[in-house]
Design a protein around this nucleic acid. Structure first.
Length: 123
RNA sequence: UCAGUUGGUCGGGCAGUCGCUCCUUUUAGGAGAGGAAAGUCCGGACUCCAUGGAGACACGGUGCCGGAUAACGUCCGGCGAGGGCGACCUUAGGGAAAGUGCCACAGAAAGCAAACCGCCGCGUUUAGCGCGGUAAGGGUGAAAGGGUGCGGUAAGAGCGCACCGCGGAGCUGGCAACAGGUUCGGCAUGGUAAACCCCACCGGGAGCAAAACCAAAUAGGGAUGGCAUAGUACAAGCUUGCUUGUGCGGAUCGGUUUCCAGAUCAGUCAUCCGGGUUGGUUGCAUAAGCCCUCUGGCAACAGAUGGCUCAGAUGAAUGGCUGCCACGCAGAUUUUUCUGCCUUACAGAAUCCGGCUUAUAGACCAACUGACAAU
């Protein structure tokens, strides 16, 4: 898995599909980069969540969460996980269930999204 | 036992499993957030800016004395003043007879004193008025020109005396701030310097996104305008009027300026157009380092022997989950036990140190003080 590091990559992912869950927001968008490195994942935790230790904790829980679902991510896509305040105290099993459902849903809608991008590029 | 003062320490532990960053001797092993990592308020190290030394001016900071320190507005030990029964605490604490300003309201008067009421004397002759003396009393105020007492006086007053305060001189103790006697003066010097100011001391600016190097890419720019466009002597070379070198001279370089030393320069500045502003390495952790013991010092701290190596990320590692224990909180139960929650409060390194300030659930240790009880 790659980690997203450029601001442009985050801005691009924000224009893709979006699914809001209790602990986090999942964004996904197709990319034209090298697929050998696996899917790209970035994490965003804003100052709204809390002070520095709380933000660190949310980011670490999200990172551990995506580690559990490493094979469920599509190498042709870039993902961004946005942490919310509930991710601080939500039981980890609940977060796992939420991400499993969100991944299943976003993979269904993904095809439609990629069609939209195709249509855009054609026109 | 209760109440309190001061100083200090810690601020979850163990195990399993899956991961992250760095290092090494790479089937593996080791290390991996704090007392404040925070606020960015002071002081430094280091780097760059052509600056360095001396003087003057300006600006800013500090401000009892002595010491510690690389330095400090920090720390330690004293002194003075204030508070507390006490342990102890607080303290922006130089100069008000160098000068200027200010002291609202109230009050007669707020600083070369001053007479509203009152008191006393004299004159006039009668609910009083006029002239003079008087700061003891009343009243106002944050503050009324030393305080208390006795004498003195027409009434009063440092007018005189004693004590206290104040000031001068000198003595003793102390490195000093200062303290304690002695003697003289006879009250002169209201407060305010986090008002100007005076005095003493200190201070160049920007900051690791500093700065250096490597690689890639692009460029080695163009146009317009302003200001300069400089000279001179000597030497060498030849192309014989140019080039190079040296000296004198010129310009620029600190907050301003003078002097001395030094550096840079053949163009420079402004505007517009065009291009670029990416990645990596170093800086970057062996240091004003930490620990034990000893020595000197009341202490801050200094010195010595020995031992240790202790985060190094850069969309930024240092974690997720599970089990047990300890503590705390809540509920049920109400001697006990069970369940749940936080796995704890404040809070996350970003070049590195010394401080300050602010936040902090709770636990522990030591010394000391007061009260009560017992001996």
């Amino acid at each position: 898995m790659r980690q997203l590091k450029k601001r442009a990559q985050f801005l691009k992912a924000a224009r893709g599909r979006k699914i809001v869950r209790r602990g986090f927001v999942l964004q996904a968008v197709a990319h034209n980069e090298d697929c050998d490195m696996g899917p790209g994942i970035g994490y965003t935790v804003t100052k709204k969540v809390g002070n520095a230790p709380q933000r660190n904790r949310v980011k670490r829980r999200l990172r551990a969460l995506s580690q559990e679902f490493a094979e469920k991510f599509d190498p042709k896509f870039n993902y961004v996980l946005i942490g919310r305040q509930e991710a601080l105290h939500e039981p980890f099993n609940e977060l796992k269930k939420s991400l499993a459902r969100a991944l299943g849903k976003i993979h269904v809608e993904r095809s439609a999204a990629s069609h939209a991008i195709d249509r855009k590029s054609k026109s």
